[in-house]
């Protein structure tokens, strides 16, 4: 027997496929509108940016890339921003993966894209061996992290890479890794992750080197605990973290713009300053996706409100009848 259902009942029983379709439309449309929404970056993102910008230019950065295409929406933006910052600062870095064998190919794709972007802007390409060293994948994240902490020359010493002339040599002969004898010689140990490799880094490398992390929204809550207890210098969480970094790449931190206005101030740490980037792209994937994220979150809030109002309205009706 078919009953007369109220609007509230119908709203509660809405087909999930309709909701998915609305979500897809809502997240697709804003992709065509790039808007620089004003934002106050999270303190953890501010510290992340300040830490990265404060690394002395003559020190090598260790960049651990533990993500694949499945989290490109978040980690892809992190990686692009980090590459842009490091390249803008002419900072040498070593990059490798511990979490997934597919991860090296993913960061190589990002590197290729950013290098093409720089070329199109008339900026020099970042060269392997001279500017950065790609070490590929190391299995057993926990074991490798222990090994990095104990003897980085032994851990990475088996890797060989081609120099500028095309001759294969030990990676420690490269200008990037030559000054490194222990992990503490690195200017910063930076992890871009979608997994628990950040836990291993904190457990095994605490006190040996400065660490910061860019992670997905799923890993964020546990990484923020490490930030709170100063085990990590800074954390950029999820898509919000990507946009925060891009915003500071454009406006700097505790820095007055040409109009005399400070767009991003860090009232908790008024002495910390970091300038905006002087070259290359500043607003990227984060600003492209940020409006879509707002649309999606708006839909969730609306669905939660309608669902709850519907539930209470139905209960009230049941009681009355």
């Amino acid at each position: 027997m078919k009953q007369n259902r109220s609007v509230w009942d119908k709203l509660q029983g809405i087909d999930r496929r309709i909701l998915y379709s609305i979500l897809m439309v809502l997240t697709s449309v804003p992709l065509f509108i790039t808007v620089a929404l004003p934002v106050d970056p999270d303190p953890s993102s501010k510290d992340f940016y300040a830490t990265l910008m404060a690394v002395p230019p003559d020190q090598t950065v260790f960049l651990q890339s533990d993500w694949t295409n499945s989290t490109r929406g978040e980690n892809g933006g992190h990686m692009e921003s980090i590459f842009r910052i490091l390249m803008s600062k002419k900072q040498k870095f070593v990059i490798y993966s511990l979490a997934d064998p597919q991860a090296p190919q993913v960061f190589r794709d990002v590197m290729l894209r950013i290098n093409q972007e720089r070329e199109s802007q008339g900026l020099p390409r970042y060269k392997p061996w001279v500017d950065y060293v790609d070490l590929g994948f190391f299995a057993n994240a926990e074991g490798t992290t222990v090994s990095i902490g104990n003897d980085v020359r032994q851990t990475f010493g088996s890797r060989r890479a081609k120099d500028e002339t095309g001759v294969e040599r030990n990676v420690f002969e490269s200008p990037v890794l030559q000054p490194i004898s222990k992990v503490g010689d690195a200017g910063l140990f930076l992890i871009v992750t979608a997994s628990n490799t950040i836990d291993y880094a904190v457990q095994r490398l605490s006190g040996k080197v400065k660490m910061a992390c860019a992670c997905t929204g799923v890993i964020g809550p546990s990484a923020l605990v490490y930030y709170q207890s100063k085990q990590l210098e800074g954390v950029a969480v999820g898509l919000k973290g990507v946009y925060d970094i891009e915003y500071m790449m454009n406006y700097g931190l505790n820095v007055q713009g040409a109009d005399g206005k400070t767009m991003v101030s860090f009232s908790e740490k008024p002495t910390v300053t970091a300038p905006p980037l002087t070259e290359g792209t500043k607003f990227g994937r984060g600003s492209k996706y940020f409006a879509s994220l707002h649309a999606a979150l708006g839909l969730v809030i609306l669905a939660v409100v309608l669902g709850n109002v519907g539930m209470f309205a139905s209960r009230k009706k049941e009681k009355q009848s």
């Binding site: 897809m24 992709l31 929406g73 978040e74 929204g217 969480v237 999820g238 898509l239 492209k288 879509s292």
Partner: peptide, 19 residues
């Protein structure tokens, strides 16, 4: 935070297709 992460992945797939 997890939900925000999942949305970011869906948005990226849409960007992959449409852009």
């Amino acid at each position: 935070s997890t939900v925000m992460g999942r949305f970011a992945l869906e948005i990226d797939r849409m960007a992959f297709i449409w852009i």
